[in-house]
């Protein structure tokens, strides 16, 4: 099945259209480019190394979720937009099965690791290209959003979340936040928390109008910011 763009969750950044997928990845059907941010693989074991024994299943769960999107979208290129691992020695702690799973996801496509603050470099000889940032046409892909004006930037780092209110209740959800020139991706990792979109760190990036797309169980929803 050819993935068809979902009209209501198309976002246009610097004149280029992407699909904000309900899974939390950004997808460009024309070029086959898929972007995923803040996987934070091996976060559980990173805490365990400091003797806080979080469940060791976060990597497995994150990779399984990623595998489902990859199987659906069949991207030619995957950009992991930084903080792919919770710390630089994360790959060394990975379980064999998880390592194999990641390898299988990387096979037969271009895989780009963008450096993040948690993983400025990665130990353990991971396959893939390592870049500090990555440009594709007018758009720059970088982990940490650049302060001030940008002309076309897709970033992660902030883990935006929002409380979406409707009749009779409210729900907290991971969100894409964007304007014409920039987009901040939701965090994909299983154990990644969120930063509320009303926080200054996110607000200050969007002095004008901010658009929001929330991740639901079935799909993404455009919601009022």
């Amino acid at each position: 099945m050819t993935p068809s763009p979902v009209p209501e969750t198309v976002v246009t950044i610097a004149g280029r259209s992407f699909v904000a997928d309900g899974s939390g990845v950004l997808w460009c059907p024309d070029s086959g480019l898929m972007v995923v941010a803040d996987l934070h693989l091996e976060k559980g074991s990173s805490f365990a190394a400091r003797r806080m024994m979080l469940p060791p299943y976060d990597t497995r769960q994150t990779l399984m979720a990623l595998a489902r999107v990859v199987a659906r979208l069949k991207p030619r290129t995957i950009v992991s937009l930084g903080d792919s691992f919770h710390d630089r020695s994360g790959p060394l702690r990975m379980a064999e099965a998880d390592r194999d799973h990641l390898k299988a996801l990387q096979a037969n496509r271009t895989w780009i690791w963008v450096a993040g603050n948690h993983d400025p470099a990665l130990d353990g000889g991971m396959a893939g290209e390592f870049l500090d940032s990555f440009a594709d046409g007018a758009i720059r892909f970088v982990h940490e959003p650049t302060a001030g004006r940008v002309t076309g930037e897709i970033a992660g780092h902030l883990h935006p979340c929002a409380r979406i209110t409707a009749r009779g209740g409210s729900v907290r959800s991971k969100v894409f936040v964007s304007c014409e020139t920039r987009l901040v991706m939701p965090a994909f990792g299983a154990l990644t928390g969120g930063l509320d979109v009303t926080s200054p760190a996110i607000r200050s990036l969007f002095p004008g109008r901010m658009a929001m797309i929330a991740l639901g169980r079935q799909r993404a929803y455009r919601v009022a910011a």
Binding site: K43, L54, P55, Y57, Q61, A190, L191
Partner: peptide, 19 residues
């Protein structure tokens, strides 16, 4: 707290429901 216990709860419930 450094990590959300709600997330830990979800992960645990999924992978080790009898923890």
């Amino acid at each position: 707290v450094t990590v959300s216990t709600d997330l830990v709860y979800d992960v645990l419930r999924r992978h080790e429901p009898n923890h």
